[in-house]
Design a protein around this nucleic acid. Structure first.
Length: 305
DNA sequence: CCCCAGGGGTACC
DNA sequence: GGTACCCATGGG
């Protein structure tokens, strides 16, 4: 029997399909099926005020007890924060932003598992979302622990660290294979302070965690992790709501909305994003990102005249 | 600023 | 059924 969760200001489909997570599949009957930790989750939203969650506990082996949950639907889906408080912190006079918020009302930034998030976004470099999903699926199938019914947990950092370059290459990572391998080895060997970065992976953030700039700088020591990917990891899995990843889609949106027909450097764009959107800039980014992709997909128009 | 590093989905024809 | 283009980029 699925667990019934009362929700408000929440939209499951937008949240799972806005490009922040890569393991969710929408089935014909309206259920979303995905793997979270060592569990297979089935989620659906039969009405605006209700989310149903059926969590099938993954077993590590036939004689072992069910694996303990590392998170809950309420926490993973960020149902434990007030969306109204967050959007109220956006600049009040930014009409294009608030239009995007209305368009996708209920979209929330997930609280994902940091290592899976990092590995997924290392794989994302200059890849389209459908291909990222395929890579993540191949990694899970080849290296992840079976958790029943053909599902696999995402492989641990240690398993990837001990994989061969060829095995990773075979998962269609291309030139990203060596980056993922080297990053996994650095974390596994303690070459960067991964615990410090991920300590804040709860919402609301724990007091005493390291600050955003420190975490960003530490993450960028990893090969294949620049500012964009580091910000994705900090936003989607480490509870840093101000992290503002800038990819080609969000860059297009920012240029069109805030700097029409003006030449702006990448640095200037970053400074604008940091100063304009406030302490929940990352959430604003996700609304603008999803809005840009939803409206522009299929159109080849070069929108700059 | 330039360039390069897989490869496959997708919009066109 | 061909094909050019583009992709949640980083590094040299």
């Amino acid at each position: 029997m699925p667990n019934r969760i009362n929700v408000s200001d929440f939209d499951l489909a937008s949240t799972l399909e806005c490009g922040q997570a890569f393991r969710w599949k929408r089935e014909a009957d309206g259920w979303f099926v995905g793997v979270v930790g060592r569990e297979v989750w089935r989620l659906r939203q039969p009405s605006p005020a209700v989310v149903e969650a059926a969590v099938a506990g993954g077993r590590t082996g036939s004689r072992e007890p069910p694996a303990t949950a590392v998170t809950t639907p309420e926490h993973y889906l960020a149902l434990d924060v007030s969306l109204r408080d967050i959007t109220s912190a956006f600049p009040a006079d930014d009409e294009p932003l608030h239009a995007a918020v209305r368009q996708h009302w209920g979209l929330r930034v997930l609280c994902q598992e940091p290592w899976e998030c990092l590995a997924s976004f290392i794989a994302s470099s200059s890849k389209q979302i459908v291909q990222i999903r395929q890579i993540v699926d191949l990694l899970a199938r080849r290296f992840g622990e079976p958790i029943g019914n053909g599902f696999h947990a995402f492989p641990t950092v240690g398993v990837i660290a001990r994989a061969s370059h060829q095995e990773l290459w075979d998962c269609k990572l291309g030139f990203r294979a060596k980056n993922l391998l080297a990053a996994a080895r650095m974390i596994d060997d303690g070459k960067i302070d991964w615990p410090m970065i991920t300590r804040g992976a709860v919402s609301p953030p724990r007091p005493g965690r390291c600050d955003y700039e420190t975490a960003l700088e530490e993450l960028m020591k990893l090969p294949g992790v620049g500012e964009k990917i580091a910000n994705c990891v900090l936003l989607f899995s480490c509870g840093f709501d101000q992290a503002f990843p800038i990819d080609v889609w969000i860059e297009r949106a920012l240029l069109r909305i805030y700097f029409p027909r003006r030449k702006v450097t990448a640095k200037r764009l970053r400074e604008f994003a940091r100063s304009h959107f406030g302490s929940y800039a990352g959430w604003a980014q996700q609304y603008l990102f999803f809005n840009e992709r939803s409206s522009k997909r299929g159109k080849r128009s070069s929108n700059r005249e």
